[in-house]
Structure formats: C-alpha cells, structure tokens
Design a protein around this nucleic acid. Structure first.
Lengths: 258, 258
DNA sequence: CCATTGCGTTCCGCTTGGCGGAACTCTAGC
DNA sequence: GCTAGAGTTCCGCCAAGCGGAACGCAATGG
C-alpha cells in the first residue's frame, strides 16, 4: 500500500509508517523558517500530496499546525504548549537527576525535584529512599507556595506579590496566622539558603529543601530530602542541610552551564 | 479495523484516524506534568495498548518523545526545537512592551496585549493606567472570541469557521442575537482596523482594540486601550483610535522585522 | 517460594482505513 | 483564453495497521 519514496526518511523500530510520516511532517516544521505548503512537504518527504494533505488536516485539527496565507501552514498554539513542557522537563529534569540520585544515596532519604509553574509548585521527579519507611510523593499535582519546605524554599526568593498572595491564601485557611513571623521565617530561609519542616501538616513527614536558580538568578524550583520525622532530629541536621544546599547549588551551576 | 473508543477524542475534517491518534498522543504530553506510560495513554484515549506503543515508537524514533524511567515517556529534544519555533512566533511580549508602554503614556489608559491561542484569546501583558480609576485585567485566563473589543478585533480577521463558531457560542448565550448585524460589525472592524466597546458587559469598562499580524499576514492578537466608560466619549475618540491603530501597526512591523 | 496483578512489549490473523493516482478547483501570469 | 502549478477531493484496491492475546518482567502479598 505504501509507495512513498523513503530515500530521505527512515522507519522506526516498532512504529508504523503512517505515524512516522506524521512525525516527519512535524519535523519539517521544526526546521522551517517560513510557512510550508502541501506540495513542498510532499516533495521534501517523497510522499503523495494527498497523504500530506490528510496529515496536515489532522495536525491542524489539534492546533499543532495552523493554516497560514496562501494555503500554507505554520506551527500552531499547541506546539507552544509543548514548548513549556519540553523545556521544563527536559532540561531541569535530566540535569538534576544525577545530582538528586547522589543526594538520595548520601542521605538515604527520598529526594525530590520541584519546579515553579505560574504561582504554584509541581513535583517533577523523585528518587526514593532505600529504607523501608520512606516518603513518597505524587508527581504532577500542583501545590500552593505557602506551605511545605519545598514551596517555602521557592517563595522566599520570589517578589513580594507572590508572598502577599501566599499570605492571603494562608489567612483564608488559618485565622491565627502571625504574618510577621511568617515573613520573618521567609527572610531566614533566604538568608540561610534552605527551608525545613517537621510534621508540618501532621503527616509525620519532615523535609529539608533548598532552591535552585536559572542563569539570571531567578528561582526556578527547589529540591528536598524528605522522610519520617523520627529521622530528622538535631543530630546530623547540619550535615543533612549541607548536603541538600550543596546539591541545589550544583543544579544551579549545571543550569548556568547548559 | 479501528475499534478504539472515540468518546473522548474527535476526528478531523479530512484527516485520518491514525494521524489524529498521533496528534492526540502528543496533546496528552502537552498537557501532562509528569511522564506517561503506555497503559495510561491507552486508557485516556480509549485506544489499545498495542496502538499506543506503536505511536510512541514512531514519535520516539524522531525524538519528539523519549523514554523515561520505568518504561514511561516524556517529551524529547525535537519537541523542544518544535516548540522553540512556535515560541519565536509567539514571542510577542518583549517586542510589544515598549510600544504598549508608550501607548499607555499617550492615552493615560491601561493598555493590554492579547494573543490568539487556538480558538480563544489570552491577555499576555498589560500596562496599567496611572490614574486612580482604571481598568485592570487578569493575565492568563482564556476568553472567547465572540465578545469584547480585543476579541472581536482578532475575530474580524479569522476564517469564517471561527466566525461561525463564535456565532454559535453567542447564540447559546443570547437567543436574540442579530447574526447579520454581528457579521456586518466584524466587516466594519476589518475595514476600519479597530474594534471598540462601551460598557458591553455592564462592567463600566470601555475599550478600543486593534489587531496585529505576523509576517505572513495572519492575525496573531490584538492590543487595546481600556478604561472607565466615562472617559470614552466622542470627544477625543478619533485621536484615541489613531494612537491604538498606530501602535498595533508598529507591533506588526516589529514582528515582521524580527 | 508461588500466585497474582499489572505494567510494557511482541505476535499474528484479519479487514478496512488509508494509500496513491488522477481528477478537480482555483489562482496567477502571459 | 490558455497554461502551469498550487491545493483539494475522489475512489478502487490491498497491505498496513488494527486489536486481541500472549509473553516477559517486576512488584507484592501470603
């Protein structure tokens, strides 16, 4: 059935020809500096115009492409959404992995990677403790910036509009909030370079978290070493802090070098 | 042959089921905050695991996706390239800022930047009026294209499928819609180069908006000068319009030069 | 240790979705 | 008006890809 010239294209191991073709069309747009037309794409890939047209319709229906002038096509808004995700997942996650794995091996606690997304925080990755009783987080859901060591480590380095917002959110939850103490605690986090929590939400969990920054000095997220509160006493605390802060700095350095 | 449940997915006009499926898999990754596995994707889209696996292989062979831990998948390097291209198309904010700031200073009203995202509009930026009573918008949420000057300034330059959709949406909201008048108003907007609104949603807000275009002549968004309706009378209206339209043209020119 | 569960990966018979060639429509230029 | 070349639509035909199921692997619990 498939008769397209495949001199320029290659197949996939275990994929399908038709899916390969969709991917190849998208690749052309990734490499193009101007709108592309049906015939141009067909020639470049050695496919029939009818096939290309069909693929374009499917991609356009999902806004991965959009129609441009003169019946040509350009990348569409969904490709933009892919941008934010690909950037945040590819660069930070792969850079941070080896560092977090080492931190896990040094502390024997679960280490996590969080990123700031808008005005919230997302767990992006974790390396689980080898111990039987350990902390395990769910990757994906969004967390507010006002509570938890991982959040506060980020919030401490954000502009006051973020802090005001966080305070407002906390006030709605707790009428007894001591705002001055809260703001002073953020100041201390900024000064010491880390945040910690001990059974903060009554979950029996404890955490030491430190922020990492982009090349411009803007906070992008935080890493943490977390586990059961019984393993987070005064003894060894400073060593633990040093490991977390050092790892966060390594991530900041890796991001700057990338 | 194709037996996938299509309750959640929609077909494309003129596309193929198999290409639609590839696009839908990519969409899932665009919306996901963490790695996805074969079974998860299969369940979300109502497809067989074998189909999903094949699509993943094709996308992985082109680095649109890549294998992650635990046999899951995440967006790959080509997605970043693709997205970078798309972002360059949408990296309007920095180009538009100086223009919008000047417009704010000239009009003493709040100026906004909106972009077309799929079939909706998003406020991307604003420069607030120095006056005490002023318009302030929320950046981020999506607005329909059918209502408001900023939306209509965009809609007037979109294909009829967008207009039909907008009319459909409006009809659901207002049974007394005069479609002919609505379409004629869009025609006037296209002709005059701007849209305006006066207390349109009973919010006391008024606005003058003009569209801007990419290098290919496609409408990408609109800018507006907005404030309390009491400041938007006939006196000074033409001068105000001229400032907005001129600023929009400057953004179009800046985009063409980029 | 075995059984169960649930994941990803591979296999294979079957059929229909999508292929490709060609016709059609539209536009621009001469 | 004709030609050329683009995008879009049509339709007969068949093999590519479907989906069900088997397989491999890992984790968990008894």
């Amino acid at each position: 059935m498939v008769k397209g010239t495949t001199a320029v294209r290659q197949d996939s191991n275990g994929g399908t020809e038709s899916a390969d073709r969709v991917a190849d069309v998208l690749l052309l747009f990734a490499q193009a500096s101007h709108p592309l037309g049906v015939t141009q794409i067909a020639r470049s890939l050695g496919l029939s115009k009818a096939v290309v047209h069909r693929i374009l319709q499917s991609l356009t229906s999902r806004s991965l492409l959009q129609a441009a002038r003169g019946s040509t096509y350009v990348l569409g808004p969904t490709a933009t959404t892919l941008a934010a995700k690909a950037w945040s997942q590819l660069d930070i996650r792969s850079l941070a992995s080896p560092i977090l794995r080492r931190l896990r091996d040094d502390t024997l606690e679960t280490t996590t990677l969080s990123v700031l997304v808008g005005h919230q925080r997302i767990y992006l990755d974790q390396f689980e403790s080898p111990q039987e009783v350990k902390m395990v987080v769910e990757l994906g859901p969004r967390f507010p910036l006002h509570s938890g060591a991982s959040s506060r480590a980020i919030l401490a380095h954000l502009p006051t509009v973020f802090v005001d917002e966080a305070v407002g959110q906390l006030r709605a939850l707790r009428t007894d909030l001591d705002v001055e103490a809260y703001v002073a605690a953020l100041e201390a986090i900024r000064e010491h370079g880390y945040a910690s929590s001990l059974n903060e939400r009554g979950t029996g969990a404890a955490s030491i978290a430190a922020p990492f920054f982009d090349a411009g000095g803007n906070v992008m997220g935080s890493i943490s070493s977390s586990g059961p509160v019984s393993r987070y006493g005064e003894e060894g605390h400073q060593d633990h802090v040093r490991l977390v802060v050092t790892a966060a700095r390594a991530i900041t350095a890796a991001l700057a070098a990338a």
